[in-house]
Amino acid sequence: MKKGQISVEILFSLGVVMLLFIIVMTMITDRNEQIRKGERYTELRETCFRVANLLTSIWSSETTNMSMRLYYNVTIEGPERSLFVTGKEQVFCSYPVSRVSNQTNTVFNLTPGYITFYYNNSYVVVRNT
């Protein structure tokens, strides 16, 4: 009888410890996912800023010819002056120059790989190489 009482106590403690462990593990998993999401977001955002800054600086300097490597899909909406970088999530950023094209369209997509920027006839031209 006495022995039985002790094991109930131990079982109860174990139950509480297990419950706490499960709660903590859930929280840690959730936070881990948030961190990974934050990392992905930061990476996409960096790409977005790099493309936007290059567009603006090519426009400002008029003659520079530059290239960079893309790791994500990018959509440029020239007239809206918006840039979308798509990975697992989508990140948006803006730039102040309205005259951007890929030589034929002002709304276009860029795929992962090398892209080239140059200034042509009052437009910044961006295209995959």
């Binding site: 603006t56 400002s60 950023c93 730039y95 102040p96």
Partner: peptide, 12 residues
């Protein structure tokens, strides 16, 4: 980033 881009346009 935006302030830098705009000021760049203004002065260049």
């Amino acid at each position: 980033n935006i302030a830098l881009q705009i000021s760049d346009l203004m002065v260049k």
